[in-house]
Amino acid sequence: MSRPGHFKMVLLGESAVGKSSLALRFAKGQYQDHAESTIGAAFLTHTLQIDADTTLKVELWDTAGQERYHSLAPMYYRGAQAALVVYDITNADSLSQAKKWVKELRTANGIDMIIGLAGNKADLATTVNKRKVDAREVAEYADDNQLIFMETSAKRGDNVSEIFMNVARQVAMKQPTNTLNKPQGAFPPTKPKPKGNSSCCSSSDSKS
């Protein structure tokens, strides 16, 4: 029997490292050469088949990369079970920014949060030698900080579904079965109760 569940995940990282492109590749298998800048945040969902009897719907917040939007970020990562922090392998500064995000996430959400670290634009390392960040050093950093690390290419699709799948698997392992098992749409009701009645739905869900 299939066990549908869902979890909240947030994409963070410096401007133009490829967050929206990773999201688009992950959710729709597509790539655009010139992706628009994200204003505020974009939201998308994609369902993953974790194993024979578990599916997980990823509720993904793709945030704006510009530092100015930083003060809005807690609204998106608060309560998120997972994050994918992205840097650009051709831009060493973007790795420093990624490390800052990891630190902030660990402070805010603790060690339980599953964090992936994606070194994006890996295609540029082979087609044109633009690499500025050494993968082995990042791998060590990722080990020390319990991060799921992969180099990815949203353009070619390399490792994109893999890193999301690895994050989702770890979320599934950490989450208690009853949370995963909670069927989508069991609450709240699809129809609101009449005006003025704020305690409008059965409280049975909250006791389950």
């Binding site: 079970q81 989450q175 949370t179 609450f187 305690s199 739905c201 869900d205 909250s206």
Partner: peptide, 16 residues
Amino acid sequence: HSPMEVSLRRRYGKDS
């Protein structure tokens, strides 16, 4: 304070 809000918050786990 309505029960629905409790269940909505619960969706996002204890961390929230």
